[in-house]
Design a binder for these strands. Structure first.
Lengths: 142, 142
DNA sequence: ATATTACCTATGAAAACGATAGGTAATACC
DNA sequence: GGTATTACCTATCGTTTTCATAGGTAATAT
């Protein structure tokens, strides 16, 4: 599993915000209800997105969250890396993990590095705008 | 993390066996020492490889494990799928997982499916023989 | 008979994951 | 100024997964 619930929730929220029209803010409660996500759990995700400057947040009535860039300018990779920490396929190539003592003579390391690059290129090549277009069937709202 | 220690160990063991010349069997104890892997933990991995027919195993003195096919005929994908169970990037596309209620209108599902296929193609396109060639620097034996 | 080896079941420790609880700070509205 | 609304923060909890250990049984060579 390379992308956990946390990352998938983050993507869904960002898509949800991208779908919003106008300059209004969307409160967390509303996002959570619409997406069927635990409100409290979503808090930690939104906090991360806000801290990283991915979304604007305003307190109080009429407040909430909104994107501060166009959907085209958010790559799926940037969102997933923020929430997942790393998209590495193995711990061997995860930044910050203890360096493997066998890396000097590891038969598999070039393979892992190639895969990591492939995955990174894949996610960096997809934007929120692409996801919006990909929807197979319209969701029911209500 | 898409490949855990278990899968990486399995790959290392298979590479180790592929490196062996002749028809001899390699006992688990020797593999574990050579690779610096917990002997007991390795037992469960070898048992899986043996049960799946990936290796031949014989009991008693002079026994142990050996490959029963050429290194070219083992794909990395087949070994990893056996030990990891699944190489899916997300639970949404993992066989056996509870079907997602949103799959009908999920913006991201096509992306996950495309990624899964890409990863599967990647691993199925690499064999043990390829890994043997990939070694950057010869390991020290002793 | 004994040593060597694979094979099997159960258990334990630690980490990751998903979620919850309870509060504080900022803003809008009256 | 007071109240409702909202984001923001820290801590904890229960479950699952991961990695590893323990202790035994069955097969084979000498």
């Amino acid at each position: 599993m390379i992308v956990s619930t946390k990352g998938r929730y983050a993507l869904r929220v960002m898509v949800s915000l991208a779908r919003q029209d106008g300059d209004g803010y969307m409160p967390l409660k509303e996002i959570a209800e619409q997406e069927g996500i635990s409100q409290k759990y979503l808090e930690s995700i939104m906090a991360a997105l806000s801290r990283a400057g991915f979304v604007d947040a305003v307190h109080g009535k009429g407040g909430g969250y909104r994107l501060n860039r166009t959907p085209e300018s958010y790559t799926v990779g940037s969102i997933l890396k923020l929430t997942e920490g790393s998209l590495s396929a193995v711990s061997c190539t995860t930044q910050g993990a203890a360096a493997c003592s066998r890396s000097e003579c590891c038969n598999a390391l070039p393979m892992w590095e190639k895969l990591d690059k492939m995955i990174d290129d894949f996610f960096e090549g997809i934007t929120l705008a692409d996801l919006l277009k990909d929807m197979a069937t319209p969701c029911q709202t209500g």
